[in-house]
Each structure stands twice: as structure tokens, then as C-alpha cells.
């Protein structure tokens, strides 16, 4: 397949020239988005009520003495004009210094490094599980006749509509309180991952399944399937070799979005299952007005998000040759 693809592509030099601007544009976009994310977060968290100096001294409403507040304000530069603080922050960001968390008394990089792994593992496993469930559901409901189609679409809608917190509590009640099979809160090892992953994967599989089924149905009704059948290919081959590939394209396009949904779901899931991770860090950081940590987490999530969208673009090109020929 690879040889055939290269054969279709333009000569090497021209191809490189087409890839370079694409790459530069992408990189420029990444830098711009990071700057925008840092700026918006910096000012947004200052707009909501609450004093960062209090966050440093033990949370909102702490009955802190005037001396302590003054000391902290001077120490953290909070007594300077907001715009100056912003420039100062941006300057440090340029050299990769995300600052220190007010509430955790630790460097933001450290906190993120400690928590990123847990969230990534959760997100990646959930994405895989969700894709598998969606694929199985879509394949079954596309090929299983009218009854399967209605049941499939009903299941997808229900799954997609279920809120994470409700699903999490229901799963806990069923699998740990009633059946006693799984621990209700996070424990080390794969057993502790089952319920959090299911909570994230089920709603996502509903969305993915809907999209996959639509495009599978489209593909099964399209001329190339007709011609494949006319060539005498078996129904299985038609489905798995031709229709599936078409169904994958919109699903891959959704992966970037799905990753975003998983990260926001992680906030809920990590809190309910008491799993350490970025989502839980972000939630407590926002509650405590821990400005450096909030911005740090948001930047890392934005970076990951952009990475995923870039990867899905590349994957699209791999799956769909038309995109490669038209590639700018």
C-alpha cells in the first residue's frame, strides 16, 4: 500500500515545499494558541473574586494578619500592577518557568509531572475502550438488520446523554456496593482503573458510535461498495475492507474533540474515584485561586490537545488518500 501511495504523490522536492509551510503554520499556530491560553487564563482567574495572597496563606477567608498578607504580596510580586505581573509571568513562561503553586508550595512543573501520567493513562485507555465499544456497536447495528439498528442507535443516544458523575456513582453502587467485584475508589494497579475508564469511555462510545454508524451506512450504500459486490467480494470483505475505512475517517476527526471531552471528564472522574491527576489538580487550583497552577495545567492540556489534533490530521491523511493529493 505504501508503495502505491508514494507512486501517486508528487515528486519529492515539491512535496517537501508543500510540507514546510504547513509545518511552519502549525508551529506558529501552536505558539499563538499557547500565548492566548496563558493570557486569557491569567486575566480570567484574576477577574473572579478571591485574593491570590490568601490562597498562599491557607485559602479564601483565612483570617490572616495584615503583616502576613503584606509580606506575601511583596514576596510574590502581587503588590505590583496587574499588567506588570502579566509581563513578568510571560517572561518567565518564555524560558519555560511555570512558577510555583501557591497552595501546594511546590513548583508547577513538579506538580504537573506528578499528575500528568495518571490523567494520560486514564484518557488513552478510555479512548481505546470507547473506540472498541463504538466500533462493535456500529458494526453490529449496521449489519444486524432493522432491529439491531434501532437498538444500536438507542444505546448510543443513552450512552452519549449520560453525565459522568451519575454514571460514576451508578457504577460504584453496582460493581462495588452491590456486587463487590471492584474497589469503589482508586487503588494501585489495573483493577482500580476499570470503573474510572468505564465512566469516561461509555458516554464517549455513544458519540463515536453514532458517527461511525452514519458513515458506515453511507459507505455501504455508495457506488464503490456496489462495484465491490459486483466484483463478487464477500459481504464480510466489503464491510471490513471498504466500509470500515470510510467509517474511520470521521471518527478519527472526532478524536481531537474526544480527547478534550476526556480531559474535562477527568475532572469529575478523578474527584469521585479519588484518583490523582491533572483534572483533580485543576479543580482544587481553581477553587483556591492558585493562579500559577491553573495556568500551568491549562497550558499543558492545550499543548496535549494541539498534539492530538495534529496527530489526527496526519492519521486522516494516512487513511484518506484524497487528502494527501490535495495537501497544501
Amino acid at each position: 500500500m505504501a508503495a502505491a501511495l508514494i507512486g501517486e504523490a508528487p515528486p519529492r522536492s515539491r512535496r517537501r515545499r508543500r510540507w514546510l509551510p504547513w509545518l511552519l503554520l502549525r508551529l506558529g499556530g501552536v505558539v499563538f494558541v499557547l500565548w492566548a491560553v496563558a493570557t486569557v487564563t491569567f486575566f480570567a482567574i484574576r477577574l473572579i473574586p478571591g485574593d491570590p495572597a490568601e490562597a498562599i496563606l491557607g485559602g479564601p477567608g483565612s483570617q490572616t494578619s495584615a503583616e502576613a498578607l503584606a509580606q506575601v504580596r511583596a514576596e510574590y510580586g502581587l503588590d505590583q500592577p496587574l499588567f506588570f505581573q502579566y509581563l513578568h509571568y510571560l517572561g518567565r513562561l518564555l524560558v519555560g518557568d511555570l512558577g510555583r503553586s501557591y497552595a501546594l508550595h511546590d513548583s508547577v512543573l513538579n506538580v504537573i509531572a506528578q499528575n500528568l501520567g495518571g490523567t494520560l493513562l486514564l484518557a488513552v485507555v478510555s479512548l481505546i475502550v470507547a473506540s472498541l465499544i463504538a466500533l462493535a456497536l456500529a458494526a453490529w447495528s449496521t449489519r444486524g438488520g432493522r432491529v439491531a439498528a434501532s437498538i444500536g442507535s438507542l444505546l448510543e443516544i443513552v450512552a452519549a446523554a449520560v453525565p459522568h458523575f451519575w454514571l460514576a456513582i451508578s457504577l460504584i453502587l453496582l460493581f462495588s456496593s452491590v456486587l463487590g467485584w471492584l474497589p469503589p475508589v482508586s487503588v494501585p494497579g489495573p483493577v482500580g482503573l476499570v470503573l474510572p475508564v468505564l465512566t469516561l469511555a461509555l458516554p464517549l462510545s455513544g458519540f463515536l458510535g453514532q458517527v461511525m454508524r452514519e458513515s458506515m451506512l453511507d459507505a455501504m450504500a455508495s457506488p464503490f461498495v456496489l462495484s465491490a459486490r459486483a466484483r463478487g467480494e464477500s459481504e464480510n470483505d466489503v464491510f471490513w475492507l471498504h466500509a470500515l475505512r470510510h467509517a474511520a475517517i470521521p471518527a478519527i476527526g472526532l478524536a481531537g474533540w474526544a480527547f478534550g471531552a476526556l480531559i474535562s471528564g477527568a475532572v469529575v472522574v478523578e474527584t469521585i474515584f479519588a484518583r490523582p491527576g491533572l483534572g483533580r489538580s485543576l479543580l482544587s487550583a481553581v477553587q483556591q485561586r492558585d493562579v500559577p497552577l491553573v495556568i500551568g495545567v491549562v497550558i499543558v492540556v492545550a499543548l496535549a490537545y494541539m498534539l492530538v489534533t495534529t496527530l489526527t490530521d496526519l492519521a486522516d491523511r494516512l487513511v484518506d488518500p484524497r487528502l494527501r493529493v490535495d495537501a497544501r
Partner: peptide, 19 residues
Amino acid sequence: WRFLPDSASRYAALQAGTV
């Protein structure tokens, strides 16, 4: 000394003997 912020999962963990 564990931190379990959600009240329902805290009780479920007690019932299950995890805590």
C-alpha cells in the same frame, strides 16, 4: 490518611472495606 472528596464514593469505600 486518604483524601476522598466525593461523599458517595467515601461511603461506598467504607462499605467495601477499602477504608
